[in-house]
């Protein structure tokens, strides 16, 4: 698709339900905080500003530049939105973007939407914010801090979000950590360079045209110290945890199994008749064939129904 920059939108089926639910809860909690913050910042202007900028980020993801041999760099936008709007507004804007991509364009699943929001909107924005603040402190507000910070924030937001994604896949038992982490991390360390460069170009333009916007972005963000502390922590934890997990895949496997046990522990409630087998479907192959027949009949019946109703309509 035109707007899908990086393989980071997890489809349904790739995360286990416990992982998906935990990330939904985390995301909802943070979105709620973001709403409170942004409402008090923007007031009634919140709806038009957030809506239009969400549309802009969505469209901006189509912007590309050719790298080499038919590949191209794209924009995801979490870092850009964070630098220009502050972390909370960025979380809201990207939540809308990721949500619409899942709901309307099937870019990422619905049940795992909480995880995708967490990776791209929340981790992306927090990490970008932590990096930007770090560069600001180091540079004492000089120009190189803004320039370097926007590149680094773009890169880090992609890289760390990819690590989060890989760990979630590993926790779900979908992809072993010792493969998922280096693969996702490696690919996105490269993709992140494109993100960093475009973010840098965009910030340069805004700096030339409307330097006041960058300043205000920094000011109203000062109050939220814990955001960049959290962002820094996320960055550190994921950066440390990921190699650890990938060198000790058994550890993560163990966690996954624990989650599996938890699921199993709840199961007796469901398995009222644990060792009972239905007469005739004692054997899995027979059951599969039976299901195939029932399924085909169902589809056939619907097809006939449709054909019949069409003929009635046309006569």
């Amino acid at each position: 698709m035109l707007y899908s920059p990086a393989p980071m939108h997890i489809p349904d089926g790739f995360l286990s339900i416990p992982v998906a639910i935990i990330l939904w809860i985390l995301s909802i909690a943070l979105i709620a905080i973001a709403f409170r913050r942004v409402s008090s910042d923007l007031g009634e202007r919140e709806v038009p500003v957030m809506g239009v900028l969400a549309a802009a980020i969505f469209a901006g993801q189509m912007l590309n530049f050719s790298v080499t041999g038919g590949t191209s760099g794209h924009l995801l936008g979490a870092a850009l939105a964070t630098i220009l709007l502050g972390p909370w507004a960025s979380i809201l804007v990207l939540t809308c973007v990721v949500g619409i991509q899942a709901l309307i364009f099937q870019d990422g699943g619905l049940v795992v939407l909480g995880a995708n929001i967490f990776n791209m909107a929340i981790v992306g924005s927090f990490v970008a914010y932590a990096v930007v603040r770090l560069f600001q402190r180091l540079s004492g507000g000089r120009r190189w801090g803004i320039i370097g910070g926007s590149f680094a924030a773009g890169w880090a937001s992609i890289f760390i979000a990819a690590l989060a994604c890989a760990l979630e896949l590993a926790l779900s038992g979908t992809s072993p950590a010792n493969i998922a982490v280096p693969a996702m991390g490696g690919i996105h360390a490269l993709i992140g360079i494109g993100e960093g460069l475009i973010t840098l170009g965009a910030v340069t333009l805004v700096l030339a045209a409307r330097p006041d916007l960058l300043k205000s972005g920094q000011e109203h963000a000062r109050a939220t110290v814990w955001v960049w502390v959290t962002g820094g922590l996320i960055t550190l934890v994921l950066a440390v945890l990921s190699p650890l997990a990938s060198s000790h895949p058994d550890g993560l496997e163990w966690v996954a199994e624990q989650a599996g046990f938890l699921e199993k522990a709840r199961e007796p409630g469901l398995s009222i008749i644990p060792d009972y087998t239905f007469p005739g479907i004692s054997n899995e192959a027979v059951a599969t064939i039976l299901a195939g027949i029932v399924g085909s009949l169902l589809v056939l019946a619907v097809a006939l129904l449709v054909a019949y109703s069409r003929r009635r309509k046309s006569t």
């Binding site: 202007r45 038009p48 900028l53 901006g60 050719s66 924009l75 840098l200 965009a202 916007l213």
Partner: peptide, 28 residues
Amino acid sequence: TIFWRSQVAGGMAGSLFLRSLERSDRIY
């Protein structure tokens, strides 16, 4: 160069952002 091309794409993203911000004002 790749760097220059990326800056052009970035410039587009920046202009898009600025114009959207102004548009959101008008909509408001």
